[in-house]
Computed example of a mutant assay.
Amino acid sequence: MMNVLVTGGAGYIGSHVVEELQKNGFTPIVYDNLSTGHAAAVPEEVQLVEGDIHDVAFLKHIMAQ
């Protein structure tokens, strides 16, 4: 399976993208600062990383994992 980083995956559109990725055999990883999204929108089995897209160092760290 391929991992896919979904920025904003806890928002309305992002959460639907996550669901579609799961249905198609991908492993989504949600990266969201939860400023407008909600952790409850992310399925339990999907990893949620709370971070801001502007924090480049942290984003690189997550991508390396």
Rank of each mutant, 00 (worst) to 15 (best):
M1T: 13
M2W: 11
M2K: 15
M2P: 14
M2C: 13
N3L: 10
N3P: 10
L5C: 11
L5T: 01
L5A: 11
L5I: 11
L5E: 03
T7Q: 08
T7G: 07
T7E: 03
T7R: 05
T7K: 08
G8C: 09
G9M: 13
G9C: 12
G9R: 08
G9T: 03
G9W: 08
A10M: 04
A10L: 07
A10Y: 08
A10G: 01
G11E: 02
G11H: 02
G11S: 00
Y12L: 14
I13C: 01
I13H: 03
I13G: 00
I13L: 06
I13E: 00
G14D: 03
S15H: 04
H16T: 10
H16N: 15
H16Y: 13
H16K: 11
V17F: 04
V17I: 11
V18M: 06
V18H: 03
V18W: 02
E19S: 13
E19H: 11
E20H: 11
E20K: 14
E20M: 14
L21D: 00
Q22G: 09
Q22V: 09
Q22I: 15
K23H: 07
K23I: 02
N24L: 08
G25S: 08
F26Y: 15
T27D: 07
T27H: 12
T27W: 06
P28F: 09
P28K: 02
I29M: 02
I29E: 03
I29R: 05
I29Q: 05
Y31D: 00
Y31A: 13
D32N: 01
D32P: 02
D32E: 00
N33Y: 06
N33C: 05
N33P: 02
S35K: 12
S35R: 14
S35G: 04
S35E: 11
S35H: 11
S35C: 12
T36S: 12
T36N: 13
T36I: 15
T36C: 11
G37E: 02
G37L: 05
H38K: 15
A39R: 05
A39D: 02
A40H: 08
A40K: 14
A40F: 09
A40E: 14
A41F: 09
A41M: 12
A41V: 04
V42D: 03
E44W: 08
E44D: 14
E45W: 10
V46P: 01
V46I: 09
V46R: 02
V46E: 06
Q47F: 08
Q47G: 05
L48E: 01
V49D: 00
V49K: 07
V49G: 00
V49C: 04
V49Q: 07
E50L: 09
E50A: 05
E50Q: 15
G51Q: 06
G51T: 05
D52H: 03
D52Y: 07
D52G: 01
D52I: 07
D52F: 04
D52P: 02
I53H: 00
I53W: 00
H54P: 07
H54A: 10
D55Q: 08
D55R: 06
D55A: 06
V56M: 12
V56T: 15
V56P: 05
V56C: 07
V56G: 06
A57C: 06
A57H: 10
F58M: 04
F58D: 12
F58N: 14
F58P: 03
L59W: 08
K60H: 14
K60A: 10
H61S: 15
I62H: 10
I62R: 03
M63W: 12
M63K: 12
M63N: 11
Q65L: 15
Q65F: 06
